[in-house]
Nucleic acid binder design. Structure first.
Lengths: 261, 261
DNA sequence: CGAACTTTTGATATCACTCAAGGGACGTGG
DNA sequence: CCACGTCCCTTGAGTGATATCAAAAGTTCG
């Protein structure tokens, strides 16, 4: 439904296909953060084997729950979110292929936010023991995951800037620019387009706007020839201008290799 | 100027005063997250010895700089922030006594945000080597610092909810409730009051509002008998109602002990 | 084909912003 | 000690961006 941008994975267990490694978003992501060994890659491949399909709009964990292991997203899109008592929702992060949900939050005894799918997803649920064993025996992976966590945090800070100090059009433009780079980094976007399963309500709950206003902002971006949405796919028609409009500076994503301690 | 809430520290080097440990905000904070040994406390005390005074409104690190070690705040208030090109500032975190600035961000090669003081501060600048040695040899401290980082992240998420989905009055009320609990946890607040060095411009840049509107919101909270500000001190007159107004739920601060893995 | 959801559009309301100016507190230098 | 500048807070008036309410049109899917 929203996975056309990436070759479909063989649903069968673990074919030790040497190229498969290139399509595993987790490996792809960690490889760009540290120099994984073949052994590292193999372990990650094994971990990613046991996937589970989760329909759209389904909670993986709720606020108040005790963390029940760690989720890894391999396909589709999920999010962290909170709800206010009157129902207002704020999305605080998008989780895309290659993202772990709760590597660290699992250390706390109670979730302070929920995690739910936005589109249909392929996820792996990994027991804490497995994770801890992985971290113990694979220092390079540990390091890469640490860096990934830092980037997640930096992204969260940028979202706060987005909601606090940008206009509606700018917020949406910024979000779309960010998603392009993040999805490219895991092989889920072409040079200017990606699968886009988000509804306008989702965008509203991400950017702190009303869905009606999101609609108007999207229309404005379209009319200015900046983007095009059709059939659950987003195409960026003029990345330069879109980035300029949003004052998008990708430094916070720390995309270039060489960040090792 | 803003330290009346806490007994003044002996400015001389390291008097091995056994009670002093109780007034060190770092020890106080970590002690509430894990069970520190006397040895742990001693090391932390040593680390905190070499303090430096930094005037208000001074950058400790700028965006784009390479991280230059780790700062620890022992007195006063600092913040993480970013600026947009036209000058608009967004504050993304308050750093209060006991907070480390960049335990992890130091792993990245370039700062994606700045850190600056809001009031005059007492800080310690700790070289990376020292930190790494500390983490290697004191697992309990390491664990406590890990938890502290998670709480910082949870706080950041709550700030996003604040700016994205709360009204002006609610945002400010929420912020004031949060500060009360955080400052109490390090012994820098009484049951209903604390030193408050922030200007209305600072509050505006924190909450994504204009300073004029912050002024009006503060006035409204005052008129409703919820708070009182005088002489750089904030007193909360009706915590119940203030929390209710903001829909403040302290769960994200994970204040109770027992969160160990 | 119908139900549920999503997008779009119009009309109106409101919250928060901008601009502008006055007043208070504080510090500094004459 | 007073004069002055600066910074911060306060207040008023007018504007603008975004929210809310409502309904129609398009989509998806069983």
């Amino acid at each position: 439904m929203q996975d056309d941008a990436r070759p479909r994975k063989d649903p069968a267990g673990k074919p030790p296909d040497p190229d498969h490694t290139q399509t595993n978003p987790l490996i792809r992501k960690l490889d760009s953060l540290a120099s994984l060994s073949d052994a590292d890659r193999a372990v990650l491949e094994t971990i990613s084997a046991d996937t589970r399909s989760v329909p759209a709009h389904t909670d993986l964990i709720r606020e108040g729950d005790a963390p029940n292991g760690v989720y890894l997203i391999l396909e589709g899109m999920a999010c962290r979110y909170k709800r206010r008592s009157r129902g207002a929702r704020q999305i605080m992060a998008y989780l895309i292929p290659g993202d772990f949900c709760d590597l660290d939050v699992a250390m706390l005894k109670e979730m302070d936010h929920a995690i739910g799918t936005l589109s249909a997803c392929e996820v792996v649920q990994i027991p804490l023991d497995t994770i801890q064993e992985l971290l113990r025996s694979h220092p390079t992976i540990t390091h890469a995951l640490r860096l990934a966590t830092l980037v997640d945090e930096a992204t969260l800070r940028e979202w706060l800037v987005n909601v606090g100090r940008r206009s509606a059009d700018e917020r949406i433009a910024h979000l779309l620019c960010e998603l392009l780079l993040r999805l490219q980094a895991v092989g889920c976007a072409s040079s200017d387009a990606y699968a886009f399963p988000l509804t306008q309500v989702d965008l509203a709950d991400t950017t702190g706007l009303s869905s009606v206003h999101v609609n108007r902002s999207l229309a404005s971006l379209r009319e200015r020839g900046l983007i095009e949405i059709s059939d659950q796919h987003l195409r960026i028609l003029d990345l330069q201008r879109l980035q300029a409009l949003a004052e998008f500076k990708p430094n916070y994503l720390h995309l270039v290799r060489g960040a090792a301690a």
